Amino acid sequence: MAALIPALQNFMPPLRPRDPEEHHRAATPLELLFDLVSVIAVASAAAGLHHGLSEGHALEATLTFGMAFFAIWWAWMNFTWFASAYDNDDTTYRLLTMVIMAGSLIMAEGIPSLFSATPDFTTVIIGYVLMRIAMVVLWLRAGCADTAHRKTAIAYAIGIALVQLYWVSFMLFQPLSSGISYGMWAIGVLLEISVPAIAESLTSSTPWHRHHIMERYGLLNIIVLGETLLAGTLALRETVEHFDIMLVHTALSALVIVFSLWWVYFLPEEHLPTRSLRRALIWGYGHFFIFASGAAIGAGFAALVDIITHHSEISVLAGDYAVAIPVAAYFLSLWMVRDRYICKGISIGVLPGFALLALLAPALGLGLEGVAGAAALAAIARSRLQAVPAGHSIPQNN
Rank of each mutant, 00 (worst) to 15 (best):
G218M: 02
L165A: 01
W74K: 13
M135W: 10
A292K: 03
P196Y: 07
L32P: 07
L63I: 12
V189L: 15
T233R: 04
A155H: 01
A197M: 02
Q386V: 05
I111L: 12
G370A: 02
Y166E: 07
W262M: 07
A231K: 11
F121G: 12
K344M: 15
A161F: 09
I133Y: 04
L59W: 08
T206S: 10
W76T: 08
A390Q: 03
A378P: 02
L255N: 07
L162F: 01
P395C: 08
N10R: 14
A197H: 03
L272V: 15
I180G: 01
S38D: 12
I223K: 02
L49C: 08
D244F: 10
A197F: 01
P119L: 15
M98G: 05
Q174C: 01
V240E: 00
T203N: 10
P17T: 07
G232E: 01
A186P: 12
A2G: 04
L252M: 06
F11T: 14
A83E: 00
A61N: 09
F82C: 03
V124E: 14
A43K: 03
A295Q: 02
V240L: 00
T274H: 13
E55C: 11
S293G: 11
S393V: 09
L351Q: 02
T62C: 03
R132Y: 15
F82Y: 11
D35Y: 12
I72G: 12
I314G: 06
R340V: 04
I380Q: 05
W335E: 09
P175R: 09
F69P: 07
P20Q: 06
H212G: 04
S113C: 03
E55G: 13
G284P: 08
M131N: 09
A318L: 10
H249F: 09
A254D: 08
H392P: 02
L30E: 10
I111R: 13
P20H: 06
E192R: 06
H23N: 14
R340S: 00
H209T: 04
L33M: 15
P112T: 04
I198N: 04
L190K: 13
L267C: 06
I100E: 15
L247G: 10
N10H: 13
I198E: 02
E369K: 05
A231E: 07
V240R: 00
A155T: 00
F69W: 15
G127N: 14
A303M: 00
